[in-house]
């Protein structure tokens, strides 16, 4: 697998549950913390996993196959465009929905990301309401207490 190499994966699991899985990959730790907290607050049923660089993020995606990947572009080492390329080259990860949250996007990189099938590209600072909307649009419906987990998830 493209991401399988011996490296340290910096990730954390905030909530373990059978609900949706969201992976956040960004090299800005403060932004990652704020966004992870917001996603967990909005979707307490979801697992929120984070990585602080592209390669670790790619490994996390390959291992966890999240419902939604919130991905930065400009990161040291492997950038977000390359992460997208590798994910899209892996048929087992075809269902992973990717949304870009970037502090700076060139028209060229945005065009390439859209060609790779990302759902949307947002420029930071992203209004929190947009984050809420994309969680609502792109995550499976929230499981209520006592509800069965859909088979295969």
């Amino acid at each position: 697998m493209a991401f399988m190499r011996e490296i340290q994966v910096s990730s954390q699991t905030s909530i373990a549950s059978p609900g949706a899985t969201v992976v956040i990959v960004d090299d800005d730790a403060s932004f990652v913390n704020a966004l992870a907290r917001m996603v967990s607050e909005r979707r307490p049923d979801a697992r929120v996993l984070t990585a602080l660089d592209g390669f670790a993020g790619g490994m996390l995606v390959a291992a966890e196959r999240p419902d939604l990947l919130l991905l930065d572009v400009h990161m040291n080492g492997m950038d977000g465009v390359e992460v997208c390329r590798r994910i899209r080259a892996n048929v087992e990860l075809a269902s992973v929905q990717i949304v870009i949250l970037s502090g700076h996007l060139t028209p060229e990189s945005e065009s390439e990301l859209r060609r790779l099938g990302v759902l949307n590209c947002f420029h930071k600072p992203v209004p929190p309401q947009r984050i809420h909307a994309l969680l609502h649009e792109h995550l499976p419906p929230r499981l209520m207490a006592g509800e069965e987990t859909p088979s295969g998830s």
Binding site: D28, F31, A34, H104, K124, P125, P128
Partner: peptide, 12 residues
């Protein structure tokens, strides 16, 4: 880019 990252955090 770096300032937008910080502003993104502030916004959230």
């Amino acid at each position: 880019h770096d300032m937008n990252n910080a502003l993104g955090t502030l916004s959230l």
